[in-house]
């Protein structure tokens, strides 16, 4: 597991601990993947990112069967919308776990190819953003 992947997973998993429902997780996931695509597409091309996404999806489906309903990326298929729809149908905890796993596997895959430093550098808008979860409550 890569450090950037672990970081991304932890941030995504916070959604569940914050009590987010499936729809909220789906929106957060859409935003995260939008950032990933925005960062990587100019460099590796749409097809390059899609190939990584497809491989990540394949690796994640075994543990998160719900992702089986997400279609493989192709020019004719809006897989981001498909992922959003699938996650929105799940319970919050399940959706957050699937989203966290998919994102981590994608980033681990990228890290294995181009190294953790370069991955962290390219995806810093996603990895370095402050947690979007609720603020921790002080104990009385």
């Amino acid at each position: 597991m890569s450090e950037p992947g672990t970081r991304a997973r932890a941030a995504a998993a916070q959604l569940a601990s914050g009590g987010a429902d499936g729809l909220r997780v789906a929106e957060a996931a859409t935003a995260a993947w939008h950032q990933v695509y925005a960062a990587l597409t100019p460099i590796v091309g749409t097809r390059g990112v899609e190939a990584l996404f497809k491989r990540s999806l394949s690796l994640t489906r075994e543990a998160h069967a719900c992702l089986g309903d997400v279609g493989d990326p192709s020019p004719a298929h809006d897989h981001a919308a498909s992922l959003r729809a699938v996650l929105a149908r799940q319970a919050g905890a399940d959706a957050a776990a699937a989203h966290a796993a998919l994102l981590q596997i994608f980033i681990d895959l990228l890290s294995a190819l181009i190294g953790e430093s370069l991955t962290a550098r390219l995806l810093h808008p996603l990895l370095d953003q402050p947690s979007s979860g609720d603020a921790a409550q002080d104990t009385p």
Partner: peptide, 16 residues
């Protein structure tokens, strides 16, 4: 130099 990436050096994919 990783520090130069996306600051001084920017890669642009023209494949499509």
């Amino acid at each position: 130099d990783l520090d130069k990436l996306n600051r001084s050096v920017r890669f642009v994919n023209l494949t499509e």
